[in-house]
């Protein structure tokens, strides 16, 4: 059994090109901490606890896992904390897109993703463009044409200026010359309520949210914002298929370790997440949440971190945010 696990890890490492880093030599000997940058109950906290649940069920780690909430500064507190714990082998953190975004727009930030040790990307969160079911807009083009004819009159509910919702708005506005309002709202609940109540015209949703609203006949989806059609909505065309050449803005979640994590510790964690990724429990979690499988480790992940930072940089600049580094 042990040989097989080691073989599996080795196989991944070979494919990742770091075959000389052995997985042996590190086993956790005390409680493991999963750090998240938000309070209990927020999306990434629930994500960390779900991963915790799956790993415990699989008995993939020999020690208990505890979720550690380090809130504040939109992730900056958590990033600093992780950077301070340089030699800690029992601490890993959930990264989300704001770990890439906030260090570029907040001068208070001292740490970027480049300082830390990415371990595994686990999920990609797809997005769709939705309107109310009784909306006059049947296609993306209908909405964009209306927004072009009445500049500043159409409204979209979303999160902050640095959110993906707003990134897509800027990319679409640049591509088509349309212009509409972005109404920031604090919680996801308020955003959906504003759409269902007809206070805004459009919203960028996650498929898990949208599917049930579609089934109840409350919402219509105009486009998939990913490069490929979603398995859960095979009939909904992508933006590209509808003639809008807008790049995909991925939203990723995964795990990252403290700076300069030893190769054998990183390999250990890669092994743990690989084992989880192959389990039916994890595949079930992805399916229930309608997440896209985003499993990526090794050099592929390093490349993703670099590319994603560059992509977000371009979009944020486009969106009119001041970059600080």
């Amino acid at each position: 059994m042990k040989i097989r696990t080691a073989g599996l890890v080795a196989a991944i490492l070979v494919s990742a090109g770091v075959a000389d880093a052995p997985a042996q030599g590190f086993t956790p000997d005390r409680t493991i901490e999963f750090m998240v940058h938000s309070g209990p109950g927020a999306g990434n906290d629930v994500f960390a606890r779900s991963v915790q649940g799956v790993l415990e069920k699989l008995k993939a780690v020999p020690q208990n896992i505890q979720v550690l909430n380090k809130t504040g500064g939109g992730g900056l507190v958590a990033m600093s904390y992780l950077a301070e714990k340089k030699a800690d082998t029992h601490l890993v953190a959930v990264f989300t897109s704001i770990w890439f975004v906030n260090p570029q727009i907040r001068k208070q930030a001292k740490i970027t993703m480049d300082d830390l040790t990415p371990i595994a990307r686990l999920v990609l969160e797809p997005a769709v463009m939705a309107v109310r079911a009784d909306s006059p807009f049947k296609t993306t083009k209908d909405f964009l044409d209306a927004a072009k004819q009445n500049p500043g009159k159409m409204k979209q509910s979303g999160g902050s200026l640095a959110s993906r919702d707003n990134s897509y708005r800027f990319l679409l506005m640049k591509n088509t010359g349309a212009d509409w309002q972005f109404i920031s709202m604090k919680s996801g609940g308020e955003r959906v309520a504003a759409l269902l109540g007809g206070h805004v015209d459009m919203m960028i949703m996650e498929p898990a949210e949208a599917l049930e609203q579609i089934r109840a006949g409350k919402v219509r989806v105009l486009a998939t914002l990913m490069n490929k059609r979603l398995p859960s909505m095979p009939k909904v065309a992508t933006l590209k298929e509808q003639g809008f050449d807008v790049p995909e803005v991925p939203q990723a979640r995964g795990f990252v370790g403290p700076p300069a994590m030893p190769a054998n510790v990183r390999a250990y964690w890669e092994g743990v997440f690989t084992k989880m990724y192959k389990s039916s429990e994890w595949q079930g979690f992805l399916k229930d949440n309608l997440y896209e499988d985003g499993f990526l480790i090794g050099p592929g992940l390093n490349k993703f971190v670099a590319d994603y930072t560059a992509t977000m940089r371009g979009i944020l600049k486009e969106a009119g945010l001041k970059l600080v580094r």
Partner: peptide
Amino acid sequence: AALILWGLKPGPL
């Protein structure tokens, strides 16, 4: 989040 994790698909239905 719990309803989603249990596979209940929270929504209008």
